[in-house]
Amino acid sequence: MSAADVVAAVTDPELPMVTLAELGIVREVREDGDGVTVAITPTYSGCPAMEAIRDDIVTALRGAGFGRAEVRTQLSPAWTTDWISESGKAKLAAAGIAPPGAAPRRSAGPVPLALGLPVESVACPQCGHAETERISAFSATACRELRRCPSCREPFEHMKEI
């Protein structure tokens, strides 16, 4: 198994249904001699899972027989939910978390300020109903919001586009 395969298969500590590769945070895996250097991108500035992710990568590489494993942080370019793979989105949906749509495109000039609720169609991951409503802009983590479905009446989480 190559180092890249080992790293790609490590799962996210907070979203264990998806791998780091599917989450789109692995920027580079380089083998040199008996060692491996991995570059990962933080999802959010304050994401408390980053240290756990670094640890999990090193543990997985050592377990696969690689002698030296170094994980470095690559801050730029900033992570976007557009880097989550199609299989990653499918796994999020299967776990009851509505996957993000396309990240908002930024036009030139000041960042626009939205005062109303965001107009977006997030389908219910339980019953598939197309229109759902926001309960709260934040859930247990910054990357997810709470929504509810008017059809099946179930609350669910949605990973926000960023």
Binding site: A39, M50, E51, R54, E70, V71, R72, T73, Q74, L75
Partner: peptide, 8 residues
């Protein structure tokens, strides 16, 4: 603490 700039 881990260094948040680790490897930057």
């Amino acid at each position: 603490f881990a260094d948040p700039l680790a490897g930057v």
